[in-house]
């Protein structure tokens, strides 16, 4: 059966998410937007993952880079950011730049026009391919915030990271669903992967344990049109 409530006919709520005193908008596409800096952050784009699989004779549709870019372009239209920051693993491997189509390179270049673009380097892309513009950095700081690819265990006030592709399995009275998500304790936030073909790691996985204590951890799960803040207790392992 299908069951909705009145709520779905009311306007969607904005997904607020605050880290180290900075208030972000958590977008249902998996991006964070910091209005005070006009900064848009996306993690783990994994451009050219499809063609990387093709090398192993698994022929995924060769449109993942185009699809990811199209979603990014929609975000750019919506928020009009001054800076776009890609939080590492933007390219699936070191040859991804060579395999990108001319059309996708042009699309990326157009997106970069009129704004700053920062590639944070990740384990998949220690070097930014020469085919694309923008600057590359290991980390980026804004106020109390540090943006880096891989989260570091221990105290890390204001860290925004990617790398882990968090997703949550959420169980409620009417069933269970698996969704990509942000996970935060107000001091640190790990962002979901943004790329079209990227999978997810359950937040109950051991990899998350050193990053988040039991205290005040909230999961912001990506719904179809909005982000839902959910208690970590509603999430189960796999």
């Amino acid at each position: 059966m299908l069951d909705r409530t009145n709520r779905q006919y009311s306007a969607g709520l904005s997904g607020g998410l605050s880290v180290a005193g900075h208030d972000f908008t958590a977008d249902a596409s998996g991006a964070l937007y910091l209005d005070s800096e006009r900064l848009l952050v996306v993690a783990d784009l994994h451009f050219e993952k499809g063609s990387a699989f093709a090398q192993r004779r698994v022929f995924l549709p060769p449109y993942d880079t185009a699809a990811t870019l199209a979603r990014l372009a929609r975000l750019a239209m919506r928020y009009r950011p001054r800076v776009i920051l890609a939080l590492g693993d933007s390219f699936h491997d070191s040859r991804a730049g060579e395999r990108m189509h001319a059309g996708d390179l042009a699309g990326l270049s157009a997106l970069q026009q009129g704004r700053d673009w920062i590639w944070i380097s990740g384990n998949h892309d220690p070097q930014t391919p020469s085919q694309v513009g923008g600057e590359t950095a290991g980390e980026h700081r804004v106020g109390a915030l540090t943006f880096r690819h891989e989260p570091r265990a221990g105290e890390a006030h204001g860290e925004i990271a990617g790398h882990l592709h968090p997703c949550a399995r959420i169980v409620a009275p009417s069933g269970g669903v698996r969704r990509r998500c942000f996970i935060t304790d107000g001091s640190r936030c790990v962002m979901p992967a943004f790329g079209a073909f990227t999978g997810g790691l359950n937040i109950r996985d051991a990899a998350f344990a050193p990053l988040f204590g039991a205290r005040d951890v909230v999961v912001h799960a990506l719904g179809r049109e909005r982000v839902y803040a959910v208690q970590v207790g509603s999430c189960v392992g796999e």
């Binding site: 959420i170 409620a172 009275p173 799960a221 719904g223 839902y228 509603s234």
Partner: peptide, 8 residues
Amino acid sequence: QDQILAEA
């Protein structure tokens, strides 16, 4: 499925 998220 969004309904489940809303419940949670």
